[in-house]
Simulated scan of single mutants.
Amino acid sequence: MILDRFRIDGQVAVVTGAGRGLGAAIALAFAEAGADVVIAARTKDQLDEVAERVEALGRRAHVVPVDLRDPEAAAGLAVAAVEEFDRLDIVVNNVGGAMPSPLLDTTPAALSEAFAFNVANAHALVRAAVPLILETAGGGSIVNITSAMGRLPGRAFAAYGTAKAALAHYTRLAAADLSPRIRVNGIAPGAILTSALEVVAGNDAMRTELETKTPLHTIGEPEDIAAAALYLVSPAGKYLTGKILEPDGGLIVPNLAIPLPDL
């Protein structure tokens, strides 16, 4: 049965930024497909809610409240998975972000911070996870969540877009180094209806602009990204590595302009 290829029964996944939004949806999708999950974010109450939903699906969740701006904390999640579940198969680097800012207001320090949060911390977790994946599972899969703004030119995204573009190419480079035993892929979402987008989606005019400028004329849902992640980590995606999936509604230009004046 083709649907059997989407099962990951008995596997263990680490998902960062899993208290809400994309990370929570990914953790729940993995649990529904048969995996136990280590879920990490800053807010314990949110993680506990996700853990309850995981357990309602018949799987186990290990909650790790942690500030993932700390590379050592990120790396520690791999050890936590093996200590709790005796194995590690999957890593999803979902946490990340940076606030929009005009180019000339974006300091070198802000650019460095965006790179550290989106790329260096992901690398810290990958470095810690790979030996444990090989030791406990023999092989596995890593997914990095990038962004459509890593490839689309839009004003005010110098830090965020540059960091996400770097993460996308890091994904390709890591895939080359870790093949054939560990597959590394990425997902570059477009506009997804999470709490981070509420301020935009709650404004009728801005939501209309988002939808109108998206070829599919709709905003994505977290489950759209969760489905892509499950495909990449499951046997259904076993012939992909070093690739970036683009569930973005067909974007070829940004679908929400930040109104900055010309120089």
Rank of each mutant, 00 (worst) to 15 (best):
A137Y: 04
L260C: 13
A110P: 13
K243C: 11
A236N: 02
P65T: 10
V63P: 13
D9Q: 09
I187H: 01
A236D: 00
V38M: 09
A41R: 12
F85A: 02
T218Y: 13
L245W: 03
L197K: 15
A236M: 00
I258E: 04
A29P: 12
K243V: 12
A27H: 04
E52S: 15
G242T: 02
L251V: 01
R172H: 08
V82N: 00
K44C: 15
G140S: 01
P259K: 13
A205V: 14
R5C: 08
D70S: 04
V92N: 00
D105A: 12
G96F: 06
R42P: 10
T212H: 11
A168H: 00
V79Y: 14
E113G: 13
I26H: 04
A156W: 09
V50Y: 04
I145P: 01
S179C: 07
K238V: 11
V82C: 02
V64S: 06
F30E: 01
A98L: 10
R172T: 10
F117A: 11
L256G: 10
D48R: 15
H217M: 15
D204L: 15
G19R: 06
L57D: 07
T43Q: 14
N121A: 03
A188G: 04
N93Q: 01
A227V: 14
A75P: 11
I2M: 14
I133L: 00
P108L: 08
T146A: 07
S101R: 12
A40L: 07
D4S: 10
K44S: 15
R59S: 05
L152K: 05
L68Q: 10
R87A: 01
